[in-house]
Structures are given as C-alpha cells and as structure tokens.
Design a protein around this nucleic acid. Structure first.
Lengths: 149, 149
DNA sequence: GATGAATTGTTACTGAATAGCTTCTGCCAG
DNA sequence: CTGGCAGAAGCTATTCAGTAACAATTCATC
C-alpha cells in the first residue's frame, strides 16, 4: 500500500467527516506512514521539526489526537508509541503483536477474542468502553533469523 | 484480606526467594496495599516522602521493579499506574478491568482468553513473551449508582 | 574486622503529556 | 470586501513518567 494512496484515502475520509486535513496533520500522517512499527511522540517531533522548525510537543500531540479521532492511528499503550493503521475505513479495536527485536507490529482483528473479553467483563457487571490488547515477543521473521543464524 | 496478612505473606515469599524485603520496599508495598485501585509512581513518591523525606524517583522505581520481580504488583499500561496483586503466591498474567469512574480495578485470570490470544499469535508465527490485556469502562457498582441516581 | 554484593543516595537528564493563553487562518454572513 | 467567528497552530511553562551513572552505605558472610 503506497503512502500516496494512504494519504488520499485519509484526505477523503476527512472531507466526508468535515474535518480539515491540514498541512501539519498530513506531515505527521506521512511520518507515521514512513515508519516501520511504532514511533514515540518525541521522535516524531524531531522528524517533524525538519520541515516544521517551530513544532513543539503540543504540535505533535494535537496532530496525534486528531489522527486518533479520525481512526487513522493506534496508540501502543505498553510502549507509549503510535502506529499508523492501514485499514482505517472503519474504526475498529485491534490486538497488537509487537516484536521487541525488530520493532515490527502486527495488527490482529479477532472478533472472538474481543467478544470473549467482553463476555468475561459482563459476568462481572463491567461495561467495557475501550480495550487494550497487546503482546510483546518475537515475530516470525526474527525467529527464523535466529534459527538460521 | 488485611494488610498485615499481605505483608507477612510477601515477607515469607521474599525469604523463600532469598530476596530482601527492606524497609523502603515494605513501605511502598504498604502504600500500594492502602490504595484502592491503581496509583501513579509520583503520587506514590509523594506519599513515601512523608516517612522517607529523601526519596527520589529512582527510589520508587527501584522499589516498584523489585515488587514486580517478586510478582507482587501489576503495572496498568493504559494508565501508567501500579496495582497491588492480592494473590501473588504464583506469578500469573492478568486481565484488568479499570473503572474510569471510581478507579476500582478488577483482576481477571482467564486462561482461555490468554490461550486464544496465544493461539492467534502462533498462527502468525509470533512468540508471545508478555501480554497486556486491559479494559477501561464502568464497573458494576458505578453502573448501579447511575441507574438509581 | 575485611570484603564483595546488593541496596540506597544523589544528580541529572530524557521522554511523555497537558494547561492556558495568544496569534493566525479560513470561512461565512452581511 | 470586510468584520467576525471558530478552529487550528504558536508559545511558554509545567507536571508526570522513567532512566543513567556514579557515590555512599548496608549487610551477610568469611
């Protein structure tokens, strides 16, 4: 999936939502799209400063908030990092597999897993509004490298 | 479960493990035991300072690291807070239900849920080393209050 | 009492996130 | 085309989260 295609899809969604895909927001979107895996807010800020020297923490966090609202990105809670979602046409909860070796993040969308969690919560009378399901470990390609190395 | 009982159980486990349940570690343990729900590191630090005026961030984080190693506490990744675990006799992953209204945290231990996540990861060739499964929402007692209020 | 390892003290720093207020910009109504 | 408004971005400062590096101390053991 090319970056330009992602950008134009995002732009279209913003139009539909009556939201403004401003220059800064697009730049942050592109930086996230360029990143393999998650990236921290301050690393993102450093990169943004190359074309937006005046950028400050608030600049990044406002852009991240916007992109989150539009459903374009996920936050990785267990590593305080942000991740572009490649199928943002509909908001969806996701389960993340984070490789601690190569930083790659795989996004799962298992409905059964979510529902089972939902069911367990219901048993306790708990109403779930937001789920965080993440795993750290080693991805397939790193495991293979290890086996061959 | 009384605090003294928790403390003595913790002390015993440390003895068995050949680990030292020092004064600072015990104080932090007690502060966590006094807390209903999760608590942030710096709030914990403020409380610790009342009896350990020299305490600094490192003091708290070292104590928290120790308590985590011993399996006494969980970290709530989605809110950067720490939580005493009341059944720490064996290390165990947990799923947390965090009430955003009253801050209460319910700890679940669903093996099926973990295994299903594990299975999904395996399908992708991913080796899980650490899981984070958390939900934010509203707990039973807050929902009841709402219904009656 | 000497010694080596674990613990704690201390200083300093990076990274994460938000608050509050000002300025700018794009759009719309008149 | 112009005034006004709302949303976006600038700016300053601060709090919270977490770690690094090294010095001083404590403690079990020999």
């Amino acid at each position: 999936m090319s970056i330009e295609s992602l950008v134009s899809r995002a732009r279209h969604i913003c139009e539909v939502n009556g939201a403004r895909f401003t220059s800064i927001r697009e730049k942050v979107f592109r930086l996230l799209a360029d990143t393999h895996g998650g990236i921290g807010a301050y690393e993102l800020l450093d990169q943004l400063k190359q074309t937006e020297p005046a950028a400050k923490p608030a600049t990044i966090y406002r852009a991240l908030d916007f992109l989150t609202e539009q459903g374009f990105i996920h936050k990785i809670e267990s590593s305080n990092a942000f991740l572009l979602c490649h199928h943002f046409e509909e908001h969806h909860p996701a389960q993340l597999l984070i490789c601690d070796r190569c930083n790659h993040v795989e996004e799962l969308h298992s409905t059964p897993l979510q529902q089972e969690f939902q069911r367990l919560a219901s048993e306790k009378g708990f109403l779930i509004q937001r789920q965080t399901i993440e795993a750290h470990g080693i991805c397939q390609s790193c495991l293979k490298k290890e086996a061959n190395g």
